[in-house]
Design a protein around this nucleic acid. Sequence first.
DNA 1: CGAAGTTTTGAATTGTGTCAATCATCGTGG
DNA 2: CCACGATGATTGACACAATTCAAAACTTCG
Lengths: 257, 257
Amino acid sequence: MHATSEIAFARTDPRVVPLAARPFSQTRSALPAAFAASLSSDDRAAIEALRPSIRRLEAGQTLFEQGDLPDHVYILAGGWALRHRTLADGRRQILDFALPGALLGWGSGAGMGHGVEARTDCTLCAIPRGQFRALTARLPSLALRIAESFAEGEAVAFDRLTTVGQLTARERVAHLLHELAGRARRAMGRAAGTEGFDLPLTQTHIADALGLTSVHVCRTLAELRKDNVLLLRAGKLKVLDMARLREEAGVDETLAA
Amino acid sequence: MHATSEIAFARTDPRVVPLAARPFSQTRSALPAAFAASLSSDDRAAIEALRPSIRRLEAGQTLFEQGDLPDHVYILAGGWALRHRTLADGRRQILDFALPGALLGWGSGAGMGHGVEARTDCTLCAIPRGQFRALTARLPSLALRIAESFAEGEAVAFDRLTTVGQLTARERVAHLLHELAGRARRAMGRAAGTEGFDLPLTQTHIADALGLTSVHVCRTLAELRKDNVLLLRAGKLKVLDMARLREEAGVDETLAA
DNA sequence: CGAAGTTTTGAATTGTGTCAATCATCGTGG
DNA sequence: CCACGATGATTGACACAATTCAAAACTTCG
């Protein structure tokens, strides 16, 4: 695992680097566009006044463990992270794949119920927890934005719960890949039609997200490949038949995002 | 299904009844204590100024369907409701059991991704959606309260996702009943130790919440009964061995609420 | 008492997990 | 440049947990 070109210069032990250490005029906003876009300029300014720092993680590193209460709240700026929960005996459930714009570590009182791990190299905007929470108590639109963020998170969680609880292995895999394809397409904003796109996940990750075994995910992917629905090799996903995929995934038209 | 004694007088077709129709001085707060307790008095007053109405549902009735965008936001005051999502072919996932204090129907733009059905007779506080949302945009502490509510909901959803994704049938049943026992005990505030308590769910409900078949839930309950862990008959749950139940449920000590 | 819904039990089936071996890929160091 | 080790993907044989189908017993309520 080594740094991608994007942030390859962050070779030193990744630590919280005070943004304000750089001349202010040169400082790009520390707030990820994906999150900031939905904020009022007042809110944005207020957050930046807290002097958020930038933190970088290499693929595989941990942002925080389940049970921790990190002293920062994070907004994912670049890269893929995953939220997961591990049981005492090692079984693991991947709860969510966090894409840029995700708010991480916003627990209320006690420790976080889940851990967060970087799947690719990641860039995060780190805001001191106490100050951030104090800010949300003053700025209604910011608090509302947080509420929206959680509402969205709940919807995603409900979606995956339905997937894991009711669908067959084949449907689950189709559903997840359909969702990720959609998210990636939206995130890139480009027509990634024929080329496929990067999916920085092993089959074990897919399995842990869907409540299956990696062996069975492999078999299922082989089927979908044989049936000309999609190709997934070497971290690249290529959807051959989107209509078929949507159908296999059992995506309810009325609920399609 | 008939009304329980608690609200048996609500026999007429349950409709939205303007609270303000009653003399104001006699009006108990329309806001359920379970929700209002965590609000500032300003927020409470502001909500009550919106003249929330009270709505009653009989057991089995629907508050709103998945896909709807109801024109009210609801706070559950009394009774058990359940949030569920149904697939085109009839498979159904119960997403959450809503207890008093739950916020229902707070979708942002589009329709709700799930439906809500009363499991027992229910009393709800209905607040006009538009006005309520406008209010949250003005009152940060209210917006924060909503965010907390969703954060909590996300935690519950993650918990159940882990349950459904990783646990065996026996563990799942144990986990759910352990959770419901805990919630009920907290809600009642009483020492419901030896008596057991009402669990207004059929085995089919349990199955739909856990991604199992009602037949298999039945077999699993029979096992747990034979092993003297618990008794569940005629809508009453009695935990015989709480330590054992917790153990079977695989509840992580470090995460126990 | 009869009807409808729920629980219970049995037998056969099947989807998914487990175990294990082989193959593929890739970065590392000799 | 190639052998090596590590990690992930693939495949086969077998085991088992959970589903399906079916029928009967039990509850509740009109």
